[in-house]
């Protein structure tokens, strides 16, 4: 039954991604869609860290920054193809997550939240101030991924918007598949167990510090890849990608949709990416409306949109 619910989620996701373009009034919406998918990918990492394992990070934008700048710098300085730069960024992010998380995750409580906050700010500062390398706050150009040209050679001619829509959509489906695999696996059970009761997790032999670190590293890789995709798509990246507001945005998206649920993460990312686009008319009130939406969700649907709605449907079914 669980297995089919995983496959059902993935099939619905893929179907929505394929079907949505038929309703796009203009090519601009491919860009909006790709933005949603990239955000959703980063938020899926937050679901693993916060929703599965119950740990909080306020600095995941730092990993997005590392992923983004890896794509800007590695091709120029080391002649790495952009696709390998994504891998390099993910590896560096994983290593840093390991180094930052290892001492902190032995402690109980919210130390990770504070330390990751510091880490995120540190990355943003380095990106802003190391002008020699990063060109500072004005941002830096990013090389072309090259995949679209390759597809063209093979006879598949996509516009830039279409390509990024399809490519980030595919990445999101893969990311969701991995997260859903984890949920029902021995490692995922250990993460959820420690979320349920750290003390009981210890008594069944779960090395709590070790599995927390696993979750932190995995979620850092998600954020890093999402950061890389953002940079490659925009062909440009600024230090804002590593900014504190971006970290908060990720957590907010996860909480809005339902932090324990992968479809919830995607819905949360979708809503909070779309809202500013819809609200451009009321640009001055955007923050106000966002805040209001968050408050209403927290008051009436505390578990987030998707889990709360599912519970209502199931409750009615019984």
């Amino acid at each position: 039954m669980r297995l089919s619910s995983k496959h059902l989620t993935l099939i619905i996701m893929a179907a929505l991604i394929v079907a949505a373009p038929f309703f796009f009034p203009s090519g601009y919406y491919f860009r909006v869609g790709a933005l949603i998918f990239v955000n959703a990918l980063a938020v899926t990492g937050i679901v693993i860290l916060t929703g599965y394992a119950g740990q909080i990070s306020l600095g995941h934008a730092g990993f997005a920054g590392i992923g983004g700048y890896a794509c800007a710098l590695a091709p120029v300085h080391w002649g790495l193809p952009p696709a390998l730069a994504v891998v390099l960024g993910a590896a560096v992010s994983a290593a840093l997550a390991y180094l930052v998380g290892r001492p902190i995750l032995r402690l109980k409580g919210y130390y990770l939240g504070v330390a990751s906050l510091g880490f995120g700010i540190l990355v943003a500062m380095v990106l802003n101030n190391e002008r020699e390398l990063t060109k500072g706050p004005d941002g830096i150009e990013v090389a072309d991924l090259g995949l679209r040209g390759l597809l063209k050679d093979w006879g598949l001619n996509l516009s830039n918007g279409e390509f990024w829509y399809a490519f980030t959509g595919l990445c999101l489906v893969i990311g969701a598949w991995i997260a859903l695999n984890l949920f029902n696996s021995p490692s995922g059970r250990a993460l959820r167990a420690l979320h349920g009761s750290e003390i009981a997790a210890g008594t069944v032999g779960i090395d709590v510090a070790r599995v927390k670190l696993q979750a932190f590293v995995i979620s850092a890789v998600y954020a890093s890849v999402a950061g890389s995709l953002t940079a490659l798509q925009n062909k440009f990246v600024t230090p804002d990608i590593a900014g504190f507001m971006h970290s908060v945005e990720m957590v907010t998206m996860a909480v809005l949709g339902g932090v324990g649920s992968v479809p919830g993460a995607i819905l949360g990312a979708g809503i909070l990416t779309l809202l500013p686009q819809v609200l451009t008319v009321f640009a001055e009130y955007e923050q106000l409306i966002l805040g209001l939406v968050m408050m209403l969700v927290m008051i009436f649907l505390r578990e987030g949109l998707v889990p709360s709605i599912l519970r209502k449907i199931r409750g009615r079914g019984e």
Binding site: P186, S187, A190, A201
Partner: peptide
């Protein structure tokens, strides 16, 4: 979850 010590394995295989 009680079987953790017997069921645990490489996290990559689980992912």
């Amino acid at each position: 979850a009680g079987f953790h010590l017997q069921e645990r394995g490489p996290v990559l295989a689980d992912l």
